[in-house]
Nucleic acid binder design. Structure first.
Lengths: 182, 182
DNA sequence: ACACGCATGTAATCGGTTACATGATTGA
DNA sequence: TCAATCATGTAACCGATTACATGCGTGT
């Protein structure tokens, strides 16, 4: 049910489903993704539940837009979610499961696996670093004097980079240890 | 579909659904979880697909056990999965989403959030550290002279600890930065 | 003429969780 | 007697993915 709260959080300013999907791309994408096919029905249900209100706004191109707003109840639900404390759920990381069983393939393939893994996460890290540079250039208050609404997003960005760097470091470590064993 | 491959990987030696669930608890639990209600039907389907074979073995207590074995095709499927390279999928981390929107609650509650988060991950780290100590005491070859079947699991354990330590470090950083802002 | 971006949605399916049903043996 | 462990499964539901359907406006 967290998508509901993510949508509520993103509706600081009114937006359509289409808008929200865009907002996902350049903010929470690294720890939360959602498709339009999931967003549209959920918005409808949230309106029915009184968490959102909507109004139709004609569009310059395409069908009329349905622009949603947070209601008072919506805001309450959001803060309740945050006040409940951190929601730490068990995650599923398939590439870690693959590492766990990597003894089933031969040693060149094993090394290759870590090389690819490292490349993947280097690419992810690069994306975040570019994002950071953008923010840095756009706002001289970056990072510690930022207003609350961007300071907390910045914290998540920072953890993302730290996490990716640990994984890259670990890949290197694995590669040297594998070579030492061969 | 990764659960399928995790099961194939765990079936290095024959096991029942119930056994497999136990094996989850003390090995892959930190990056993959599964309930019996998901395991039983999946095992049945995998047998139908020719990846597993089963035989009924009477039990000392409870109903007769259904013990599964990997077939040749099952082994092929597993190595194919590993040879395809790392499966890096987008993850959903709800507590990070909460941090992203944390500006919606007041500053004491915000700090409280990070305190709880840190405690949660310290507990997780503790579990892994205890697991490591056990392995260390059981096998003098730990960690670099271990046989392949336990060396790779050990790598995943190590990354788990590294990841949790970065998160804890980040929590501390967030707390000092928040105090500096207030 | 055709592809692309805007903008809305539905339907089928899949992976996972929660709750329920059954029944034997063992130990407090 | 009662709870726990062993051991199998089914059913209902929920969250997420993939595929499909529709149609306007703009630029090549």
């Amino acid at each position: 049910m967290s998508l509901q709260f993510v949508l509520l959080g993103m509706l600081r300013e009114p937006a359509s489903g289409y808008d929200l999907k865009q907002r996902f791309q350049n903010s929470v994408r690294h720890f939360w993704a959602a498709e339009l096919a999931q967003i549209y029905p959920l918005l409808a249900r949230m309106e029915k539940d009184g968490l959102l209100s909507s109004e139709k706004v004609p569009s310059t191109q395409g069908p009329t837009r349905k622009v949603y707003q947070r209601t008072r109840a919506g805001f309450e639900a959001l803060s309740q979610w945050l006040l409940q404390g951190p929601e730490v759920r068990s995650e599923r990381v398939s590439w870690l499961a693959q590492v766990f069983f990597l003894s089933h393939i031969d040693s060149t393939q094993r090394r290759q696996f870590f090389v690819e893994l490292k490349a993947d996460f280097k690419a992810h890290l690069g994306e975040l670093e570019r994002l950071e540079q953008g923010w840095q250039q756009d706002d001289p208050r970056y990072p510690d004097a930022l207003p609350d609404e961007t300071f907390f997003p910045q914290l998540t960005l920072r953890l993302g980079m730290m996490k990716y760097r640990t994984i890259i470091e670990w890949c290197d470590e694995c590669l040297t240890r594998l070579e030492a064993r061969d």
